[in-house]
Design a protein around this nucleic acid. Structure first.
Lengths: 199, 199
DNA sequence: GCGAATTTACTTATTGATAGGTAAGTTGTC
DNA sequence: GACAACTTACCTATCAATAAGTAAATTCGC
């Protein structure tokens, strides 16, 4: 009984659907929702437009699925680093941004969704609202934690400081497409503002 | 000799062209470049698509003209407040953001252009690059001025702090579409970080 | 356990709407 | 009558979406 004798798990079962979703996510973060088409996906994956419609009847369904999966992934990311120091959590956050930029100069989902908000289907707007609220709450909790533990030092309240950090990283990730140096300047300065040694 | 006897300056001469440019700018900042069409403009202004093509042959020409005019306007804005205190200049900058938000939740030009950068015609990319560089330089000069005059107090260098401020306002303006409170939190906290009394 | 019925996972072909763009004609003004 | 400022009429490409068909896998009745 070799491994290859076992049924090749469901390599097909959900494989196409997942590949479509992966490609949609990639295109969303590089081109934005209104600037990618079913053609972009189907030609890249070697299938027909109708195959995408089979799994995701409307483009809206595809968009919603991308955000929902992202929200679940983000939730796992947050849960997975519970108990860590505030500083470690902050660094994980920063590293996330760097990885976006390095992957075809992608921008963060909140950046795409808020920039295109008024030209998004209403189902996607609802998902975007929930997602952005979750992100900001999480950023606030990190800063509160860091204040309480004495790791961070800054004037003003945590929620306002979270707004600065969140908005700056979102904007910075977009601006990095035009000025590569800005992201590093940004992170260094944010650390300085939190009273951390140069990071 | 009444006023109406005088040649109505050139009420027509460049009026249509200007109205097209105004509408294009408005649509760019509310919908983004790829989500507005010649139809949006022509139907709103009561003319035909071909009338727009007469003044701006390609959509690229229209986009470039919008950014170029904006750069000139921004330059006048900068020149106009030379000699003022750093604090006054900063407040003028903040007020600019507020005005965007209040006008149909527009976002700043740099936000649109950087979010859509990879799906913009190359002529527009070139304009966007120049514009963003000008904005960041200006933000840096305000902060340097404020540091030198003793109005501002913060750790790190002015250029990095300018990156934080610029990126945070760009991101915040976008996020305000989903969370109206974020812009005020942001401005308040930025003032605190610059060592200013609550503003 | 075998064949019929049904479902899954697509392809082919076509739709109507809309995109940006162009050429030729019309109208008003100096 | 010449030029500027359009409109009319059209073209081609692309968009998301749908209908109809098909081969393979799965489920079900007996």
């Amino acid at each position: 009984m070799t491994a290859s004798a076992l049924p090749p798990p469901d390599d097909d079962r959900q494989d196409t659907k997942k590949r479509i979703l992966d490609m949609a996510e990639d295109l969303l973060l590089t081109r934005g929702f209104n600037a990618f088409s079913y053609q972009h996906i189907s030609s890249e994956l070697g299938m027909k437009n109708a195959a995408i419609h089979y799994h995701y009847p409307k483009k809206n369904d595809l968009g919603v699925a991308v955000i929902q999966r992202y929200r679940r992934r983000f939730q796992r990311f947050v849960d997975g680093q519970a108990g860590q120091s505030a500083r470690a959590q902050l660094e994980a956050y920063f590293q996330l941004s760097t990885r976006y930029y390095q992957h075809n100069q992608q921008i963060c989902p909140s950046g795409v969704l808020s920039a295109e908000f008024h030209v998004l289907p209403s189902d996607m707007q609802a998902e975007a609202l929930a997602f952005v609220a979750e992100m900001r709450d999480w950023a606030t909790r990190i800063l509160q934690h860091g204040l309480a533990s004495g790791e961070f030092h800054f004037a003003g309240d945590a929620r306002a400081m979270a707004a600065v950090m969140f908005a700056a990283l979102q904007g910075g990730l977009q601006l990095a497409r035009l000025d590569a140096a800005i992201l590093d300047d940004l992170k260094r300065q944010l650390c300085a503002l939190l009273g951390l040694p140069p990071c």
